[in-house]
Amino acid sequence: MALLRPRDVQQPVLARLLDNERALAAVLLAPAVLILAVFIAYPFVMGVWLSLSSTSVGNPGRFVGLQNFLKAWNDSIFQTTFQNTFVYTFWATIFKLALGMWLALLLNRHFRGKRFVRAAMLLPFIIPTVLSTFAWRWMFDPTFSVLNWLLYRTGLIVTKLPFLSDGTWALWCAIVVNTWRGMPFFAITLLAGLQTINPDLQEAASLDGANAWQRFWHVTWPLLKPVTIVVVVFSIIQTFSDFQLIYVLTGGGPANSTHLLATYAYQIGVATGLLGEGAAISLFMFPVLLAVVWIQLRYLRRLEGA
């Protein structure tokens, strides 16, 4: 006499485990957690540890507390660097936002060749930074500067401008290049935001008696705010931790006057080999970026809640 057994009694262990929601969640999350742990958490913790140690190339080092931070803080090059980073980020972001917005508003209109212009606008963004920055470096070159040549020939200047040979000039040159490079990202993102705004609103506002500026200020801008906040925060993070552009354009010079935190940290930590001090310098970025991200998250949460 054969007994009929219910099938589920013989279900394999794995299948039963996957039926358990908690176990399944753990399995599905594991790869992401692993990647985050190896590539984000470990280097970050390692960085923090290095910044608190006297490690240098060839020397495992020991715990020195906040000594690296204090040393950096009292270092005049670091002070310039710290200030440069804020000036660079602030102005570059302002310019990118203003010009990007202007471009986006222009591109949101209908005109012949619109697609071509939109695509062409992305060029500065697509070209590798190192390449385009090299091109800019030639344009700013003390001897061969095409800009100086043009300005001189048109009679606008009588002596050559010290583009990269003067510290203040050089930093502004870097801001210009950063703006040139980052503007397309602003323009494209803002343009995408503009296109989600119902064109009827513009028409309604114009019937309500608003002129072009009032339509922008009272209708377009408030509706574009969420997109703007996101793109500005993104840009602040990237600009604040910028490395490539300065490294290629000025290398931090002349006389260490154009360093940003990232390039100076590299200079001290890698080029000089003082890993602990370099890590401390780069960690100065952390509180600033944390604050920016926190503000953004709070704002976005408020938007969702509203």
Partner: peptide, 28 residues
Amino acid sequence: PKDRDIAMVFQNYALYPHMTVYDNMAFG
């Protein structure tokens, strides 16, 4: 349009989404 002294009601209402009802009506 603003000088024609007309008002229009749109098919999809075209209310300003970021303004309150009061501000929508007061805008003009």
